[in-house]
């Protein structure tokens, strides 16, 4: 029976982030936390497979002290046990640092048959966690997965590429990142929410993972984050003869390279 580990990120809910109109800076002061959207798909997929075929689902997260708020939420979504690493380094961590910490933790709590995560996080969508963790652990990686099956130690996936789909199978441990259309994450029922408090969770001290201070220094440093506002040309064609307006509209669209 497959042993899953799902990696998830506790992010700010982008719906709560306001863009200031004067300088486009982001105001996240009232933003609540949430489990990153694609990671919910990963948790759901693991939970569904285990509910159908048996096995277990552990989850692992690395974040600031706020990650503790995620534990009951994630455990109400089908996970059996949650591991969490809470450290201030996560606030500045880039994809390399995050992968190093997660890989070190997996070496400590593993092994697992399938390590799942979302294709990218809701906040930064770097799409680097799965391939970097796989590389550090020496495991194969299957990304862009929108169909997953696990049978007798073999992982079968369908990947959704730009112009086609690809089917692949892997034997043995593998890292998989999933797309949002792989499933519809569940809405936890009351008893799942209340039952979450009875499930185990374990904090992993960053210092116990053998990660050096140099490993925690990000190479990519975010200088600023600003809101994106789409600007429009507001061109209006209002000739007396509608046919003239249509002709000008088509001509304009052609000149813009849209046809």
């Amino acid at each position: 029976m497959p042993k899953f580990l799902v990696l998830y990120k506790w992010t700010l809910d982008e719906q709560d982030i306001k863009i200031k109109s004067d300088d486009l800076s982001l105001d996240a002061s009232r933003a609540k936390g949430k489990i990153s959207d694609f990671d919910r798909n990963a948790i759901e997929e693991a939970a569904r497979i285990v509910e159908a075929k048996g096995g277990s689902v552990d989850v692992l997260t690395y974040g600031s002290a706020a990650v503790k708020q995620s534990l009951k939420d994630v455990l109400s979504r089908g996970a059996d046990k949650a591991y969490w690493i809470a450290d201030a380094s996560a606030e500045t961590a880039d994809a390399v640092v995050t992968a190093k910490v997660l890989a070190a933790a997996i070496r400590k709590i593993g092994p697992y048959d399938v390590i799942l995560t979302g294709e990218g996080s809701s906040d930064q969508f770097n799409q680097q966690t799965a391939p970097r963790v796989a590389a550090l652990l020496g495991l194969p990686c299957l990304s862009l997965v929108h169909k997953l099956d696990v049978e007798a130690g073999t992982v079968s996936v369908t990947r959704k590429l730009a112009v086609c789909t690809e089917q692949a199978t892997v034997s043995g441990p593998v890292v998989v990142s999933v797309l949002s259309d792989i499933n519809k994450p569940r809405i936890p029922g009351l008893k799942q929410v209340l039952g979450a408090a009875k499930k185990p969770n374990e904090e992993i001290a960053l210092g116990s993972l053998g990660v050096s201070p140099a490993d925690l220094q990000p190479k990519a440093v975010r200088r600023s984050a600003k809101g994106f506002v789409m600007t429009r040309k507001n061109v209006v064609f209002k000739d007396a003869n509608p046919a003239d307006s249509v002709a000008k509209l088509v001509s304009s669209l052609v000149s813009e390279g849209l046809f």
Binding site: D73, I187, P188, V193
Partner: peptide, 18 residues
């Protein structure tokens, strides 16, 4: 509490979805 918050979250998700 976490439970109260999550129950409200589930109800809001249910309402939005269904």
């Amino acid at each position: 509490t976490d439970e109260q918050r999550l129950i409200g979250q589930s109800a809001r998700a249910f309402a939005k979805e269904y």
